[in-house]
C-alpha cells in the first residue's frame, strides 16, 4: 500500500513539472501584457514596472528564477494587485473554493446515493424511472443555466434564499452548493444504481434473501459496500471537476473563491497569479487522484491483487 502510494506520488512530480513549464511559456505567448491599460502608460513608466517585476530579463532567465523561487515556496507578487503576494490571494480564495466543493460533494453524495438506492431497489418501476429521469436532466442542464434558474425560483419568486454571496447572509451557501453539486449527484445516481443492480444480482444476495433477511438489511449491510465501487472510483475525477468547475458557480453567485481569481487573472494577464493557481489546482488534483486510487484499492481486494502483480 505504502509502496503504491509512494510510486504514485513520484509519478505526480513530473506531471507538475510539465504543468509549470507549459503554463509558464504559454501565458508569455499571449498577446497583451499585464501593464496594458485603457489609458496608455508612458514608455518610461512601463520600463520601470517591468524592471520591478523582472519582466525585462530573457524569458528563460525568468523561468529559472521562477522555478528557484517556487522551490523556496514563493509564488511571487501579483501583477494585478500591487502589494499582494500570490500566496496571500490564494490563501483568501482557496478555503472558500474548498468549502464550496465539500458542500457540493455532500449534496452530490446524499442526493445521488438516495436516487440510486431508490432506483435500484425497484428497477423498472416509477421509483426507478423518476429519479433516473431527474438524473438525466441534471446531466443535461449546464450549470450556468441551472444556477440562475434556481436563483429565480428560490431567491426571487419564493424569496426563501439569498441570491448571491458566501457568508453574507444566512442560507446563502445553499444555492451555490446545490448548483455545483446537482450535476455530480446525477452521475452518482446513475453509477450507484448500476453498481447496486450488479451486486443485487449476485449469488450471495440471493442467499441472504433466501435466509429471510429484510430488504433494508440486505441493502445496507450487504449490497451497499460492493455496489459503491463505481461511485468511489468516480470520486477522484468528481472532486477534480468540482474544484476546477467551481468558477462558473463563483461567477453566478459572486463568491470570492479561487476560481473567480483564476479567471480574472487569466483575463488580466496576472502571470504569477495564473501560475500559482494552476500549480496549486494541479497539485490538488494529483493528490486527490492518488487518494481516490488508494481508497479504491483498499476497498477492492481484487484491485489490490492486480497492483501487487504489476
Amino acid at each position: 500500500m505504502i509502496r503504491i502510494a509512494l510510486n504514485r506520488i513520484l509519478q505526480g512530480i513530473p506531471v507538475l513539472f510539465v504543468v509549470i513549464t507549459v503554463t509558464f511559456f504559454l501565458i508569455r505567448q499571449a498577446p497583451g501584457g499585464p501593464f496594458d491599460a485603457e489609458r496608455a502608460l508612458p514608455p518610461e513608466v512601463i520600463k520601470n514596472l517591468e524592471a520591478t517585476y523582472r519582466l525585462d530579463a530573457p524569458v528563460y532567465q525568468q523561468y529559472f528564477d521562477y522555478l528557484g523561487n517556487l522551490l523556496k515556496g514563493d509564488f511571487g507578487p501579483s501583477f494585478r494587485y500591487p502589494g499582494r503576494s500570490v500566496t496571500e490571494l490564494i490563501a483568501t480564495g482557496l478555503p472558500i473554493t474548498l468549502e464550496l466543493a465539500v458542500y457540493a460533494l455532500a449534496v452530490a453524495l446524499v442526493l445521488g446515493l438516495l436516487a440510486g438506492l431508490l432506483a435500484a431497489t425497484r428497477p423498472r418501476t416509477l421509483q426507478d424511472y423518476l429519479p433516473m429521469a431527474l438524473a438525466m436532466t441534471g446531466i443535461c442542464l449546464p450549470t450556468f443555466l441551472l444556477g440562475p434558474l434556481l436563483v429565480l425560483v428560490f431567491g426571487i419568486w419564493f424569496e426563501w434564499l439569498p441570491v448571491s454571496g458566501w457568508g453574507y447572509a444566512p442560507g446563502d451557501k445553499i444555492l451555490p452548493s446545490l448548483t455545483l453539486g446537482l450535476a455530480y449527484a446525477a452521475v452518482i445516481a446513475r453509477l450507484s444504481r448500476g453498481g447496486l443492480l450488479e451486486v443485487l444480482s449476485q449469488n450471495y444476495i440471493r442467499t441472504a434473501r433466501a435466509k429471510g433477511l429484510s430488504t433494508p438489511t440486505i441493502l445496507f449491510r450487504h449490497a451497499l459496500p460492493g455496489g459503491m465501487a463505481p461511485v468511489i472510483a468516480y470520486l477522484g475525477p468528481a472532486i477534480a471537476g468540482l474544484l476546477t468547475g467551481s468558477f462558473v458557480v463563483e461567477t453566478i453567485f459572486q463568491i470570492p473563491g479561487l476560481g473567480r481569481f483564476y479567471v480574472q487573472a487569466a483575463f488580466n494577464r496576472d502571470y504569477t497569479m495564473i501560475m500559482g493557481t494552476t500549480i496549486l489546482l494541479s497539485a490538488l488534483i494529483v493528490v486527490l487522484n492518488i487518494v481516490a486510487d488508494l481508497v479504491s484499492i483498499k476497498l477492492n481486494p481484487q484491485l489490490r491483487q492486480k497492483h501487487r502483480h504489476e
Binding site: 436563483v151 426571487i156 441570491v163 448571491s164 480574472q264
Partner: peptide, 14 residues
Amino acid sequence: DNAQTEERMFRTGA
C-alpha cells in the same frame, strides 16, 4: 462583476 447578479441583489434588498 456580474450585472445580472448585481441586479438580483438589488431587487432582493441586498
